[in-house]
Structure formats: structure tokens, C-alpha cells
Design a protein around this nucleic acid. Sequence first.
DNA 1: ATTACTGCAAAGCATTTGCAGACTG
DNA 2: CAGTCTGCAAATGCTTTGCAGTAAT
Lengths: 142, 142
Amino acid sequence: MENKKLKWPQGLKKTETRKAVISVLEKTEKPLSAADIFSEIKKNGSNVWLSTIYRILELFVKKGIVNKLSVMNSEMAVYELNQFKHKHYAVCVNCHKIIPVDNCPMEKFVPQIEDDDFRIMGHNLEIYGICKDCAHKSNKRS
Amino acid sequence: MENKKLKWPQGLKKTETRKAVISVLEKTEKPLSAADIFSEIKKNGSNVWLSTIYRILELFVKKGIVNKLSVMNSEMAVYELNQFKHKHYAVCVNCHKIIPVDNCPMEKFVPQIEDDDFRIMGHNLEIYGICKDCAHKSNKRS
DNA sequence: ATTACTGCAAAGCATTTGCAGACTG
DNA sequence: CAGTCTGCAAATGCTTTGCAGTAAT
């Protein structure tokens, strides 16, 4: 519904490819790899190069408008817009599908590390298991 | 204190290198990368090759005696013995030090994904922040 | 006009794979 | 002895980097 407008980071030129990267990330509900974004942009006929996507993503991460995540069982890093919403993902160990989880177990959690020892800035949680589709497939002995 | 004896997986030959990998993993309290394990074993004068370490680790993961984790901000995967103890890690965003955390926020947590949608098998939590050493360093304006 | 950006090519680095000889059971 | 392992080399795949031309401000 409400399409929150992203503030363009100061000092960054507004090029076609950069706008395209943001646009792709705005349209997806799950994190995408550089290659995903690359092929999505190529669909529109643009002459983009993968290294450019990597450079743009790296820059966006540095500017804080994109988060870089590494998902287990996957060699490729994935990226998402930093919506400043707290989010976690469930990952299917079979098909590697990524499913967003909205509530967070850390909200009321105080880890047993003292403030003196470690100043906690954030966390990263990943739930793994079998998604509905894969569960069904393995039930039917085909 | 109690040095729990690891049951050797059936069907796997007990070679020097494999025993050395287990031994290195038994001696450490934090997850190690393949390269870490490799150089640790080389110290003892063995003529090992990195690809062998990777092959052994992959095998151990498949047999369930080793866990493979990917830690953010690090390109290299790390490995730990599967002690069947529930464990998480805090990672310093500055020096990348890894600190074990013993309690777990997931114990009493029920995520908002139904059993029908996703059968949860486990999870992976990573806390990030600044460790004591790095906090002290940045306080002193040197 | 300046300087940042990108197409493109090539390098870099962790990890994987192929093969033949070595070792375990 | 047979089949599994490993040393070794080379390949693979994601990501980074260098450079010169192009585009944004």
C-alpha cells in the first residue's frame, strides 16, 4: 500500500542502473543476490554488467540503505533494502526458499554477555527447516 | 574437564588427517575455518593439503558430527564439532572476534509461521556488536 | 568542465573436482 | 587385496579491481 519513498543518499549520483537496483529491491519481498538483481535489470534491456551491480550494492550497504545478509547453505550473499523494520527469515534446507518471519525472539531477550564485555548492536537470526512445498513433495512417494 | 569421546562415524576410515581435524576441533572453543584447521595441522609437520581438509569437513558435516556455520562479514565458512549443545555466537563488527553465548532466546519462542507452512528444524543466531577490546581501543584517542 | 560511474576484462580468493598413487580395514 | 583417501593440480564460481570512456552535476 504505502510505498515509502527512499531518501537518496547525499553525494551519490542518480544513475539509471542505481535507480534500477533500488527499484528491483523495492519490488521484492525477499532478499536477492547480486546475480538476481542483475538478471532482473537485464530483462528490461539495459546493458548492465555484474560488477557494476556489486559496486552499487557495496556502496548502498556503506550508505546504510541496503543490508547484506549471508544465508546458510548458499554461497551467494543476498541483499535487501534497509527498511529499518526488524525482520528475520526462514530458509528451507531443501529448496533454499526464503520466507520472511515477522516476529522476533530477541525482543525480550537479554543474552548472558555483560555490557562491559560486549556492546550489542544487533543480531541476525535464521530459522531453517522444510517448507510446505518440499514437505508435500516428500510425502508423496513418487 | 570431561572430554566427551566422539563416536567415529561408521564406514569412515580413521586416517591421520581425519583424526587431526577432530583433534583440532576438540581443542578449540570457537568455530574454525578450513584454513585455520589446515594451518593448525601443518604446525605438527604433517603434509596436508587444503582440499583434503575441505573434503573431510564436508564429509563430517554430512555425517552430522560437524556443523558448518557462516559468519557475517566473513567470506570464509567456519566449522565446529556438533556437541549437540545449543550455542550461539557474538561477533565483533570491528575485529571479527567470535564469542560464544550460552543462553538462547529461541527456547520459548514460537515464530509466526504455522507448522503447516514450515517445519522448523533449527535456527542460527548471530549477535553482532563491539567487543570489550575494541571498545577500549576506540575510547582512547590514540 | 570535473569528477563520479560504468562497461568491460582480468585478477583474486575460497572452495570443488579429477586423477593416480597411498593407505586403511 | 579392494576400495577408500589424499596429495597435488587445475578448474570453478562469486566477488573485486584496474582502466579508460561516459554520464551526472
